[in-house]
């Protein structure tokens, strides 16, 4: 009998944990927390503190102040990518977007082994309406899809970038001539 260890997957998860911690530290809008104490860490909660369109389907639209998504890496993540398994939309439940229907979010085709940084960036683009499915054929929320086509001036949303930009400017004082009023 052999012990069931998958060293390749374990190494992948350890690397993703370091990346997640760095991403959490570098972002003002994202809080990325690992769940559980057992190694390797395979589950995260991503909370985006930025406007998220919600409501619709007969109710008025509003901007929810934040959204929460669960991200997990199943043991077969390096062999095949299963978006419904990797990303779970947690809140707001009435998020309004063609690519979102609680508890599912559609991020499109991704290769196996896609890392947490890429997944988080894709989710950020969806929440910001920078990534939008415009046809009902592939959309999870058909009502939002029709709204997207009829209200192109309403998206994408004006949201902060995922990573804060560092200000790295060299400043020089301006010398004002003495005889200038």
């Amino acid at each position: 009998m052999t012990r069931d260890e998958d060293r390749v997957f374990t190494a992948f998860c350890e690397g993703q944990l370091r990346i997640a911690q760095a991403l959490d530290a570098a972002s003002d809008v994202l809080t990325l927390r690992a769940l559980g104490e057992e190694a390797p860490v395979t589950r995260y909660i991503a909370r985006f503190e930025m406007p998220c369109l919600a409501g619709g389907n007969g109710n008025g639209l509003r901007h929810a102040p934040h959204s929460t998504i669960g991200i997990c890496f199943p043991p077969y993540h390096l062999s095949r990518f299963d978006i419904a398994r990797v990303a779970t939309w947690l809140e707001p439940r009435d998020a309004y977007h063609p690519n979102i229907k609680w508890p599912f979010i559609c991020l499109g085709h991704m290769p196996p082994g896609t890392g947490i940084e890429e997944i988080v960036y894709q989710i950020h683009e969806v929440i910001a309406w920078q990534r939008v499915t415009m046809t009902e054929l592939d959309a999870l929320n058909h009502d939002a899809c029709a709204w997207a086509r009829s209200n192109r001036d309403q998206h994408p949303l004006d949201v902060p970038p995922l990573k804060r930009h560092s200000l790295d400017y060299a400043l020089e004082p301006i010398r004002v001539p003495e005889n200038r009023p």
């Binding site: 062999s79 990518f81 229907k101 979010i105 991704m110 290769p111 196996p112 999870l140």
Partner: peptide, 24 residues
């Protein structure tokens, strides 16, 4: 277990071409 399997010869493109099932 030291013998190659079919995935030993796969690279990124082979995995990228795997049929995926989306929530939609």
């Amino acid at each position: 277990s030291d013998s190659p399997c079919i995935e030993c010869g796969w690279h990124t493109d082979d995995y990228a071409r795997l049929a995926q099932r989306g929530p939609c």
